[in-house]
Amino acid sequence: MHIDKANLTNLTGLWKKYGLSGGDKNALALPHVSARWPHRCWFDGNMLDLGCANDTLWLDNLPESSVLPIWPMIRANNGDNAEEIEARILERNWVFAFAQVAMYLELKEAATYTLPVRDGFQVLLVRMPAEARKWVEIASQAFSYIIDYSVIENVLNDKDIRVLLGTQDGRAVATALLYKTGDVIGVHQVGVKQAFRGQGISRCLMQYILNAGAQWQGKYMVLQASPSGQPLYESLNFIPQFTIKNFQRA
């Protein structure tokens, strides 16, 4: 599988794990819709191929909280209808909300990635409900939106998911979630509590994640970076792939 497609497969696979709302799968214009956080709505195929770009009335039936991501088509001729799709969405009273850059790294042996050396810093694998609630609290604050606790609770025991909580001197300060699809490990929800930013905690957490990913027998690591997070990932040798534009109702 092409690494660009592998990135999207990991991302949308995690959204499916989080939970989807029901719908008529025979309806051509019906996308996947998250039943709750992270509120994503997307297509498995290309909107133009599905005949959805010119008939966008389905947008009116999406939940008010829906976030609609648009990414380039990943296919042999690299055809990209994103601009036409975006124009149709904007005509329906939706607005650009934020962008992310898909990135990947080809993992080396675990010994290549030294564990972080920082006094008092640890990374815990979340298993218990109390730990999950603390994870949700920290992540919600870090990203400035409310994460649904029940979504995280439902994936705690999934063999392909690892929910990580970073602590500094015993205090929960950072979060991450790893999701493995084949030999690809997706890095999601990397966040640091606001009061602890600018102290190098994100880099320490990512050093731990790189080591853990290699030990988990991953061949590639993928993520979707915010503009503020991209410099850190580039410094760790992640390679940019493409941009994901996210839209919401005006």
Rank of each mutant, 00 (worst) to 15 (best):
G166V: 01
G191L: 06
F96N: 13
K180G: 10
G170F: 09
T9F: 03
K108R: 14
G186P: 14
M1P: 09
N93I: 00
D4S: 13
A142E: 00
F96A: 15
D60P: 00
L164M: 04
Q224K: 13
I70E: 00
G213C: 14
W15V: 04
A53E: 00
P116H: 12
T181F: 09
R133Y: 13
C204N: 09
R162T: 00
L28T: 07
K159G: 00
S150N: 11
G170Q: 10
V67F: 00
P231C: 08
I185K: 09
Q168A: 09
I70R: 00
A214W: 07
E109V: 12
R171T: 14
N154T: 08
L20S: 03
V173H: 02
K5M: 04
S65L: 15
G218E: 12
G191N: 02
V184H: 06
H32C: 12
A27L: 11
D44G: 09
G229L: 05
K5N: 01
P38R: 08
T9R: 07
G182N: 06
G23M: 02
I161N: 04
Q189W: 08
V190K: 00
G51C: 03
Q248G: 02
L115T: 10
C41S: 15
Q199D: 05
P69Q: 09
Y104H: 15
L165T: 04
G191S: 08
K180A: 07
A97T: 13
A76C: 08
M1D: 13
T175N: 06
Y113A: 12
I146S: 04
K159A: 12
W94H: 01
F98G: 03
L90S: 15
I70S: 04
S66Q: 11
L177H: 13
P69C: 07
I74G: 02
W37D: 09
E109L: 15
I185N: 02
F143M: 13
R118G: 03
L57F: 09
L62V: 06
A76W: 04
L28Q: 08
P69G: 08
E86H: 06
R203C: 11
I85C: 09
Y220Q: 03
Y149F: 14
L14V: 01
L178N: 03
N211F: 15
L20H: 02
S65Q: 15
I244V: 12
A102W: 04
D158W: 03
G120C: 08
Q230I: 03
G198M: 07
D169K: 10
G191D: 03
S144H: 13
A102M: 07
I74Y: 01
L8M: 07
L14N: 05
L68E: 03
K25A: 12
F143D: 08
S140M: 02
R162L: 10
G22D: 09
L232Y: 11
L205S: 10
E86R: 11
G51V: 03
A195P: 04
T56N: 08
A6I: 07
R40H: 12
A132D: 06
S140H: 13
Q230R: 11
R171E: 09
C52S: 14
C204Q: 05
R127H: 06
D60N: 05
A99G: 12
E137V: 07
S202P: 02
V222A: 06
Q215C: 11
H32E: 00
A111Q: 14
S202K: 08
L59C: 05
S65P: 04
A76K: 10
I239E: 14
Y18P: 01
I3R: 05
I138Q: 00
P116R: 14
A142K: 01
I147A: 05
L177R: 02
A214C: 03
T243R: 06
L125H: 14
